[in-house]
């Protein structure tokens, strides 16, 4: 279980408050108006933003003192998820070893991960030679190799077309079921939430609300969500 205990997160001048818990293995969409603090919430869990007060616990372990790379977190950012000077295999391999000194069995693992996301033949390419969808797949192959308990997505597929985005979300759902990861996904599209999320966290006016079942919340939105959904 992921617990955010009376958290207050600082992001420059504004703060986001959160006091909630998320069941292990669930898939949660984080929705709300832009500027309300969706990304702030995700980045605090990933360790990029400091807490003014409160604690973040994963399986009763306090994450506060841990550096981003040491947390049980794999994260995909809005953009810049790949290093342009590294090959597809190297970018994925970072999920196993940050210094890329891969043993032979590890290299085989990388190849299997690339197979899994449908990029088996493109291992030696550089990201610039890939389409947007293929680049997303490389990042997902890396997530697969990282095997972290928590997968945080900050709208990494926002630049893709609707069909491609749906395809990527399905792939995320598959990967999450295979690895048993708990998924938190920022989104401004309620369709994304319906597609893969069982619960939704509404972030509005600097407050992250406790997760609620997706269909229930979206079919019967509270005023703040209603104003946003229109």
């Amino acid at each position: 279980m992921l617990r955010l205990e009376k958290c207050e997160i600082a992001n420059g001048v504004f703060t986001v408050r959160a006091d909630l818990q998320i069941a292990a293995g669930s898939r949660v969409a984080v929705v709300g108006p832009s500027g309300a603090g969706k990304t702030t919430l995700i980045e605090a869990i990933a360790g990029f933003l400091p807490l003014i007060q409160g604690r973040i616990l994963w399986r009763r372990q306090d994450l506060n003192a841990m550096d981003p790379g040491k947390r049980p977190v794999a994260m995909l950012f809005q953009d810049g998820n790949l290093f342009p000077h590294l090959t597809v295999a190297q970018n994925a391999g970072l999920g196993l070893r940050p210094n890329l000194r891969l043993t032979l069995p590890e290299q085989a693992k990388v190849q299997r991960a690339l197979d899994r996301v449908g990029l088996a033949d493109l291992a030696a390419r550089k990201p610039a030679a890939l389409s947007g969808g293929q680049q997303s797949r490389v990042a997902l192959a890396r997530v697969l190799l990282q095997r972290r308990d928590l997968l945080l997505l900050d709208e990494p597929f926002a630049a893709l077309g609707p069909a491609l985005k749906a395809e990527m979300l399905d792939l995320v759902a598959e990967i999450a079921s295979e690895t048993g990861a708990t998924v938190l996904m920022v989104s401004h599209d309620p369709q994304d939430a319906r597609r893969i999320a069982d619960h939704v966290i509404l972030v509005a006016e600097g407050q992250a609300h406790a997760p609620q079942p997706t269909a229930e919340l979206l079919d019967n939105p509270p005023p703040a969500l209603k104003a946003y959904l229109g």
Binding site: P68, G69, M75, F77, G95, P98, N99, Q146
Partner: peptide, 12 residues
């Protein structure tokens, strides 16, 4: 941030 999230710090 990408590097930090992958624990690529220092010499890596």
């Amino acid at each position: 941030r990408l590097a930090l999230s992958l624990d690529m710090v220092g010499t890596a």
